[in-house]
Amino acid sequence: MSDRHGERSASDRVPVDDLLRSAVEPMPADASERVRAKVVAAGVASNPIAARHRRVHAGVAAVLVACALTTAGVGFAAQNALPGDALYPVKRATERMRIVFVPADERADAYLMQADERIREIERLLNAGASARALNEAVEAFCEATRRAIETEPDEASAQRKIDEIRQHVDEAPPAVRDVIESALEEADMAPDPTPPVSPGIPPVKPDSDEPEGGGPPLSEELHLPDPPDPGPPPGEFGVESLPIPKPDSDE
């Protein structure tokens, strides 16, 4: 970089900010994986809301255990049932009973968990080459759980958040599952038949007169509601009481 007189030429010099932007380096993979496993486990274990959910679920589980004992384990055995199985109605009845024990402010999340279970069922049915009738039953049940998850939210903003979550869960499903759900909804919307073959679709949270009849968009668009207006941060505060506050220093 230096000539023989020790001087540096202009072409040897680059802006500091370019150097800084290129200085971000990945943590060594083995260390990163080790730390990842540890902090994720700690996060799940120490999260207060998750812990509250686990307590609720534990309570529900206790009731279910009692029910399972009185029904000679039928309820337990039904947990892996799929549409078309003899025990599937038992599984759905068990889910409905669990909802009764979930606090009202957590009920939307419980319905969302049901929708997730339906997605897993659809995936298993597809993998097993199940009948269209069984697949339809799972798709309809998914729509029902989704509708209830949205309607249970107390206001539009909460419903919007729930829609976002559902949209993400569907987006993260295997492509084949996603296609089944979205095409089922599309077909339902296009079909004038009041008894559509697959699914009645997901009723919107509120009437949307702008939506043309027939030919609905994919699920991710179908579920979309306008973003609520951003209220912006309250002036002069960060809204987090326990937020770590930067330590004072002597720079200024």
Binding site: M27, P28, A31, V35, K38, V39, V40, A42, G43, S46, N47, P48, I49, P231, P233, P234, E237, F238, G239, V240, E241, S242, L243, P244
Partner: peptide
């Protein structure tokens, strides 16, 4: 030491994530 600090950061963050308010910061 940087790996240790990184681990501490995420342990604290994930432990306190229930206090995070997305409207604030």
């Amino acid at each position: 030491e940087a790996e240790d600090v990184t681990e501490v950061v995420f342990l604290k963050a994930f432990e306190a994530i229930g206090t995070y308010d997305r409207r604030g910061l």
